[in-house]
Nucleic acid binder design. Structure first.
Length: 581
RNA sequence: GGCCCCGUAGCUCAGGGGAUAGAGCGACCGCCUCCUAAGCGGUAGGUCAUAGGUUCGAAUCCUAUCGGGGCCGCCA
């Protein structure tokens, strides 16, 4: 149930009736008509801008339309009052029963409450993480991993058919470097001194790979030329790295549906086919690029390359798909990969990339637009940097990796739930500070704790009710007489709960999972506030000794809050706690 | 030189066409014989970077400028 869309439908119906009756002109476009919670509660429960939006096309004054609309709306049992205000807002006050029904719906629907059919089963591919298979995941990947996973869950919740996908960059020169690095660790495992030359990966994480290579090959590869072992070790090491990355993702609670390999695109004709398709659209040509202005590469020389005409889609420069020696650039398999996603039948593509890939966005969008005939939208979300802090200073530990803080470092210290929640407390395109001291603090400075505490309190109430001999299981609560909820403070909490389905849709439309985190904080705040009202006014406590019916109605409200917190945390991939200990 | 992101209370940030711009922290004043005070209520604090434009209406959209960050050929 989504109360806001229900009331909006009521408004739209009323407007249609007014058109049919000749009060309004026929054929008005009502797309811009909105029903929203007003900023100021004194203005009522909901407000619609219908009169202001329609005034001009209807050639009538906003207040005239608003007054006529008000007369229609109050005929509905849900609408108590409808008042024209300000420049032409129509402020609606809803009957208490409406809010009681929201509580009932949350209890009845449980984790389904707030789910919608917005996506209508459209197939969405969310590609995220896609870290190079050359080492463990580091902090830079964590934000993208959490963001992508939460976005995928959010889209699934509103009715999209979501695929979580990881693109393995196993086709380029960096996997050769990986293989050479692993070879040195293999030599080390055989008692020789490893020669970790400049440019090789120095991290400890390759030591076990060296051991495994020794177990497999013994000493047979020692002193052999690269041509003998490079291909085999490349495969071996890449698989080992991917296993490590899967383990890292599992620590964060991320489960991919599909792993796609860059290497697998080579030799299949897929890259050539994608490029030829673009050539057929006159988007591929041979030419030379100019040196970038403002930056002066010393050894710049013009070279003839195969270029993609991304300027046709607003990019500031055409982009090379082939190097001057005829081999593919990184971009070429990426074109084929996105073509592959389109041909697999996805209706919407989403790429989650680090902010350093900002310059890459336009060419990707160009490719997808061209190869899908403009039918498949690609949304690229860039996640900005995460700055780690500990003890009041930047945190730059490098336990295993040589140079970077790993995902494992973060999750081991902060925990999966805290890490995930904090990563979503900022919109993706703003930089984020992650302070180990603060995120582990048990106070309201820490939003994770604050939300979890609300959930724990709700469970506490239910436990206490049991001790007081009041049945408070979900089956009993579902039958509670919610008419007993009538106090303003109770209805205010129900109002916040009623916003959940609307909030979910807004977050999903904007691909903005952080809105869930902010909403949960607000809901928790509303709950804590209500909780404390019980200190001043005993009649507002959840448990009313000797009055099971009233207690159950109040506990139903608490439980409905818990249902929403639990659902919201579920989308964020955070486990709700039952008690704080 | 170009492209992308950011600029909102002392600090950290929400809000991204609608009414008197919100929250947390910090400051100040209150609230525990009572379901977890790990919490709650209140007070103070704003030229929404600047200047134009679009609109019935702009923190929000457009343009320019200023400030901070990121990126910019055969790296992936």
């Amino acid at each position: 149930m989504n109360l806001f869309s229900d009331i909006r439908a009521l408004v739209i119906d009323a407007l249609a009736e007014m058109s049919a009756e000749g009060v309004l002109p026929a054929g008005l476009d009502t797309a811009a008509v909105a029903v929203e919670p007003p900023r100021d509660l004194a203005h009522g429960d909901m407000a619609t801008n219908a009169a202001m939006v329609l005034a001009k096309p209807a050639g009538m004054s906003p207040r005239t339309i608003a007054d006529a609309l008000a007369a229609k709306l109050v005929a509905d049992a849900r609408i108590m009052t409808a008042e024209t205000a300000g420049p032409g807002f129509l402020n609606l006050r809803l009957a208490p029963g409406v809010w009681q029904d929201v509580v009932g719906a949350a209890l009845a629907e449980q984790s389904e409450f707030g789910r919608s059919t917005l996506g209508q089963g459209a197939r969405v591919n969310v590609e995220f993480v896609s870290a190079n298979p050359t080492g463990p995941m580091h902090v830079g990947h964590v934000r993208g991993a959490v963001f992508g996973d939460a976005l995928a869950s959010l889209l699934g919740f509103v009715g999209y058919d979501v695929t979580r996908e990881y693109y393995i960059n196993d086709g380029g020169a960096q996997v050769d470097v990986l293989a050479r690095s692993a070879y040195e660790r293999y030599r080390e495992a055989n008692g020789l001194d490893p020669e970790i030359a400049e440019g090789l990966y120095p991290g400890d994480y390759l030591i076990p790979v060296g051991e495994a290579l020794k177990a497999k090959y013994g000493t047979t590869l020692i002193d052999q030329p690269e041509s003998v072992w490079l291909a085999d070790i490349r495969v071996f090491a890449t698989e080992a790295m991917m296993q490590m990355i899967r383990d890292d993702l599992a620590m964060l609670g991320v489960q991919m549906d599909v792993f796609s390999s860059e290497k697998a695109l080579y030799g299949t004709g897929k890259i050539e086919a994608a490029i030829e398709t673009l050539r057929g659209l006159d988007l591929i040509y041979s030419g030379k690029l100019e040196a970038p202005k403002g930056k002066q590469p010393e050894d710049w020389e013009e070279r003839e390359q195969t270029l993609f005409r991304s300027t046709a889609y607003g990019d500031d420069q055409d982009r090379p798909v082939q190097k001057s020696d005829g081999s593919w650039t990184y971009f070429a398999p990426d074109i084929a990969y996105h073509y592959d996603k389109v041909t697999r039948g996805f209706d919407i593509l989403i790429d989650i990339l680090g902010a350093d890939h900002g310059g890459y966005v336009k060419r990707l969008k160009a490719v997808v637009a061209a190869l899908s005939g403009g039918k498949v939208p690609l949304d690229v979300k860039l996640t900005q940097l995460v700055k780690l802090w500990k003890n009041g200073e930047p945190f730059k530990m490098s336990k295993r990796a040589g140079t970077f803080v790993t995902l494992r470092d973060v999750v081991e210290q902060a925990g999966k739930d805290v890490t995930r929640f904090i990563m979503l407390t900022r919109k993706n395109d703003a930089a984020l500070d992650f302070d180990f001291d603060k995120v582990l603090e048990q106070s309201k400075d820490n939003p994770v704790f604050y939300v979890q505490y609300a959930h724990a309190r709700i469970n506490s109430v239910i436990r206490k009710a049991g001790e007081a001999g009041i049945a408070a299981d979900d089956a009993t609560l579902a039958g509670a007489n919610l008419d007993l909820l009538g106090h303003d403070a109770e209805l205010a909490l129900a109002r916040k709960i009623a916003e959940w389905p609307r909030l979910v849709e807004i977050a999903a439309r904007g691909h903005e999972p952080h809105r869930i985190a902010f909403y949960l904080y607000e809901l928790a705040s509303e709950f804590h506030g209500f909780w404390n009202r019980g200190n001043d006014d005993a009649s507002l406590r959840f448990i009313q000794e000797g009055d099971a019916a009233t207690s159950q109605a109040k506990i139903a409200l608490a439980r409905a809050t818990g249902v929403v917190i639990s659902a919201g945390l579920g989308i964020l991939g955070v486990t709700p706690v039952e008690e704080m200990r």
